[in-house]
Design a protein around this nucleic acid. Structure first.
Lengths: 215, 215
DNA sequence: GTAGGATGTTACTGACCGGTAACACCCCTC
DNA sequence: GAGGGGTGTTACCGGTCAGTAACATCCTAC
């Protein structure tokens, strides 16, 4: 198991530093990365332990020494993806300090942009929610918490921008966001409706905040 | 279901019921119905042939006499769901003849309503698209065609209502729709953002068509 | 150089998967 | 009453799945 208070933690961190300086990262990180790629591209239920282990260039025993089960690896996969996503969002919004409306527009533009990348397969959390529906998988809590965080991220900026009814507008933007990511899988790329997402988003913003100074 | 008695008994009883009702006692229909329930609730990849066969009160051989493979059963499942959905939509819009705007509002209200039903698990097609991504499953074509049909359904009504830019607005409504269905799985029910979908939809309609005569 | 932790190797379990073969039955039609 | 089509029963196939045991090897800190 991955006991958090293991007496060897100090040694582990030390070797990790060395490993990062060298070529190969620790097995645990390689496993999460391999799982992340495969789970995202093919789906959690379609990817077996053997495939992950092979992709990570290791073996099953090393996986089960680092993770109690496949479920735990799935949880880690989603947490990692979420962390990366918010890091990217912070970069995007940092370009528009003290302008919450511009931050949101930039964010939505960014999402449309990455939606056009070749390997894009929608939202990892949403896909996982679909695959794990009807179960009591521990990853579901991670997904719910992640969506609440996203909602807060949007809601805070709408309030700061002076929305009259920020809750309703937040819901609207959440629907656009969720729809944009999912429709990459339900539509052919040329018909992807998110190509018009920013226009529709601005229509909602204008109705609530008044037209922007400059778009 | 299989509460008491052998599977054989159950199958015979079901056949007799269907025969008495007048429709054909086809195993095929029972299989599609059972597959529809299980695929929708638990997911295509989580439901095995044995479970479907058991739920339908029949056996594997009868399944493979009616369908070439599980894939073909999946295709049939999605086609059936789509047919049922459009039938319900026709009922909903029929209440507002010659008022395309009111038809769309009623449609969206209807979708929010059924989203609150206990057994609701999002959109069958979207869920399937997630589960089958990265494959060449024949059901993907069914999904794409279905989405195009929905888009046409919305687009026709927006044009009839006199939208200035019907394509962009159609995309916006498609995103709301897709987002509403998916977010039933990514949010806890109390935080479901589609509870504000109709308000946001009307904001988009008002911006394009002008305020409605009466809402 | 040695001890100990991290990693690799092989082989295995028991369950489940989609799909098939061979045969038996039942009921409707002619 | 003789078919024949639709259906049920049983047993099986090869493959994959998540997870484990026992043992071998490597690397690094001391």
């Amino acid at each position: 198991m991955t006991a958090s208070g293991s007496p060897t933690q100090g040694a582990q961190e030390a070797s990790q530093e060395k490993a990062q300086a060298g070529s190969k990262p620790r097995v645990r990180d390689r496993l999460v990365e391999a799982a992340s790629d495969l789970f995202y591209q093919q789906g959690i239920n379609c990817v077996g332990i053997d495939a992950i282990v092979c992709e990570a260039g290791t073996n099953k025993m090393s996986l089960y020494r680092n993770f109690a089960s496949k479920d735990e690896l799935v949880v880690q996969y989603l947490k990692e993806r979420e962390k990366e996503t918010f890091a990217r969002w912070e970069e995007v919004t940092a370009a528009h300090p003290d302008d919450p409306r511009a931050q949101l527009v930039a964010l939505f533009e960014h999402i449309v942009e990455i939606g056009h990348e070749k390997a894009h397969c929608g939202c990892p959390s949403a896909n996982a929610a679909v695959e794990l529906r009807g179960t009591e998988h521990p990853a579901l809590e991670v997904i719910y918490a992640g969506r609440e965080k996203v909602r807060g991220y949007v809601s805070d900026r709408l309030r700061a921008a002076g929305a009259r009814d920020p809750e309703t507008l937040t819901d609207g933007l959440m629907l656009l966001l969720e729809g944009a990511l999912m429709s990459r899988l339900t539509f052919r790329e040329k018909q992807w409706p998110a190509n018009s997402m920013v226009a529709n988003m601005k229509a909602l913003l204008d109705a609530e905040l008044g037209p922007a100074a400059a778009d």
